[in-house]
Simulated assay, not measured.
Amino acid sequence: MILLFFISIGLSIGYIFLLQWITEGWEVFIPNKGGNPSIKVSIIIAARNEDANIANCLSSIYKNKYPQELLEIIVVDDQSQDRTAAIVKEQFPQVMLLHTIKNRGKKAAIQLAANRAQGELLMFTDADCIVPEKWLDTLVSNYNPELVNFIAAPVQIDLEDTNLSRFQYLDVAATMAVTANGILRKSYYSANGANMAVTRKIFLELYSSRLDDEIASGDDMFTVQYLAKQDPSKITFVRSLDATVTTKGEETLSDLLSQRKRWAGKSRHYPEKNIVLVQGYVFLLVAMMLFNLVFGFMTNVTAVFIAVLMLFIKITMDYLFLSHLCKHNRKEEATKKYLISAAFYNLYILFAGLVAMFPGKYDWKGRRLN
């Protein structure tokens, strides 16, 4: 029991230091890279069954003041079963509209667009995202081909007054902090495909030699991690509200779990494993809580008190960490009813960890994928 106590408390203390390390890394100041505002940019959007969102997404892009002659927008209709393609064609005739032929998923759609793109810099977002009015200027100003070939930038959930929305907002905010910390410290590498940019030439060279084509998603993580193996110094993260895109959260718990299953299931294929170590540590912490709880009820009640102590430490530290992030994002209301989000989050960590270890098929936008 003494050994169990020291292991459990050691994990909790380690978690405190982990959050402090992530917070300090997230706050690292990276100066503007002196980018050229006159380069041609190609924005790529892979869309499947997004007729409710695609017009708002494209309209938000056109609200940016970037010179139109230097802006190319490519929408790839990925076998949509609704009016996604028709809306683009009717309302945005200036947009290049492509169609996938094979039912291979988002990565194949992105590769199709990249092969047709003319811009020096490829920028990616999703069809259900809204970009801020200075998004293009902010990312381009941080692009300098001599210093940077990949830019990761923040994504946030469109916050609504529901427990599910608040949980998703906090989860994604924490993920963005973890992403920024890894990139800015050059410790591990991750990104979100809803908001990233990469040199077109580098991207095309990378795609020709990649070995993850059998995985339907993961264009973001695989791209940044393959590039990190080549030259991590040219990967940066732009921590700015002007660079932050907003995406819709999942409307039902079933859809959320399906999305997270898709995210977690590809982690075992990552070419760079340091990010998995960070995720694995948090999973181990929560698994130890559960073990103490079950062990305590079955044999020794002292273990229950250890589990409660671990949970108290984690919930408290998470609250301080997330409150700090929400204050920066000007979304303090996301921590409303925090205990509900905290309870679900710890269960979700167990779910994600098990899915990462034992991945299977999942349903996504009418498809059954690996």
Results as ranks from 00 to 15, higher is better:
I2C: 05
L4F: 08
I13F: 13
I22N: 02
T23P: 00
W26C: 11
E27I: 00
F29C: 05
N32F: 00
G34R: 04
G35P: 05
K40G: 05
S42Q: 03
S42N: 10
N49M: 06
K63T: 04
Q68Y: 08
V75C: 13
D78R: 02
Q79H: 12
Q79L: 15
T84P: 03
E90T: 11
K107W: 03
L112A: 04
Q118H: 13
D126G: 09
D126K: 05
K134T: 11
L136W: 05
T138K: 13
E146S: 11
V148R: 01
V155F: 02
L159N: 03
D161F: 11
V172K: 14
A180F: 01
Y189C: 02
V198H: 01
I202T: 15
L227V: 05
T244S: 13
K248H: 14
R268W: 10
K273G: 03
V282F: 07
F283H: 13
F283K: 12
L285R: 10
V294F: 15
I306R: 01
M310C: 11
S323L: 09
C326L: 10
C326E: 12
R330T: 09
T335D: 03
L339K: 06
A342N: 07
F344W: 08
I349V: 15
L350K: 06
F351S: 04
F351D: 02
K365A: 14
